[in-house]
Design a protein around this nucleic acid. Sequence first.
DNA 1: GCATACTTACTTACCAGTAGGTAAGCTCTT
DNA 2: AAGAGCTTACCTACTGGTAAGTAAGTATGC
Lengths: 204, 204
Amino acid sequence: MPATQLRAASPTGSRTGTREAILALALDLLQARGFNAFSYQHIADRLGIRKAAVHYHFPTKADLGLALVAHYRTQFEDWRAAQMEKGAGPLDLLRGYMAISLHFLRDGGKACPLGVLEAEFASLPPPLREAVTALDTELREFLAGVLEAGRGAGIFRFDGPAADKVLVITASLQGGLHIARAAGARSFTRMLRQLERDLGITND
Amino acid sequence: MPATQLRAASPTGSRTGTREAILALALDLLQARGFNAFSYQHIADRLGIRKAAVHYHFPTKADLGLALVAHYRTQFEDWRAAQMEKGAGPLDLLRGYMAISLHFLRDGGKACPLGVLEAEFASLPPPLREAVTALDTELREFLAGVLEAGRGAGIFRFDGPAADKVLVITASLQGGLHIARAAGARSFTRMLRQLERDLGITND
DNA sequence: GCATACTTACTTACCAGTAGGTAAGCTCTT
DNA sequence: AAGAGCTTACCTACTGGTAAGTAAGTATGC
């Protein structure tokens, strides 16, 4: 899509920004309701455009899902780059990652995009499944590095491989966001505190 | 539902067992695909009956969802009663609970019914939401008791309130079952081992 | 500098399929 | 005779997706 690149490069080229508006709204709907629980019609209605306009930008729902994963991946990469630039340590990185989840929860009870897609995994188009698996792996590898570095620096304390510990932490965060919808937001903040205790982090 | 009680009480009263077959299949579909991802038509097709027959037993999908939660609750109560009868200790109970999750995963990559319903919480009929919250609370209270008893007996070792630790464990189990679909079944068994390590359980 | 050719970003109008749900009738057992 | 347990036939709403058309902008050749 050379035209898209052109628009992205030159601000004057983007007259409406419809594509970006669809992506932002769809990510919201995905996190708040799930991939199978929103339709092109919902997006069109809330954006004041026609359904076919959504299909123009994202021909099939699989295309939209793929773009959503790519969009979320970009957001994560930007966050990671910003953290690295300001020299964030393992504790900053872990707490920053937790803060992202907490922000989701407070923003209308949203969940992690990957957690939502994994919950609906069986009904996802195969290409979307592969994209989810790939990003999921990337996030876990990043966090495993954070955990290992933190343990080496004496900031975290835990038994077993960091690759196993990261599974507990990401599963807790994703599952905890879902549980918080039924059990209340406090359940999630209490869970976060417990996750820190389980890493030997002593709170002031 | 007097008819249900009658059929359940007197085996001769149940000629076909259609109601039970619907419940069993619907629970399967719920765990494997999600509440919004199966339809009355799916159930009817796989059971060799008509869609209206499903509506006869469960007029609306909310009714079916409510029955599903009640059904799962009964299964849990039966399991708990059986464990209590054979004098299971905290470690048996915790591992038994983990084994249920592992059994779900191996039975076609199914997830915890409550975890699935919580992931779709926003699109659930309000009565169903309340039933989910109630059962979720019950399960957590049970497990918190197990954790506290185990800590008192020197079997488990963890910091903080058992009510917080149970949030980490249930969120891990529910989230871990979803993640396993994208990351593979091994990720779940490794996560289970880490959960045990985080409780100070030393494996042979 | 102006017409021609083409692209972008939509709209209107439609499609087949499926969703949940209902009313009326049939059949078998008690 | 009555009711439980269905079936047939239907309804409306909505799903993802497509075809055809159009207004507005951009690029190119002369």
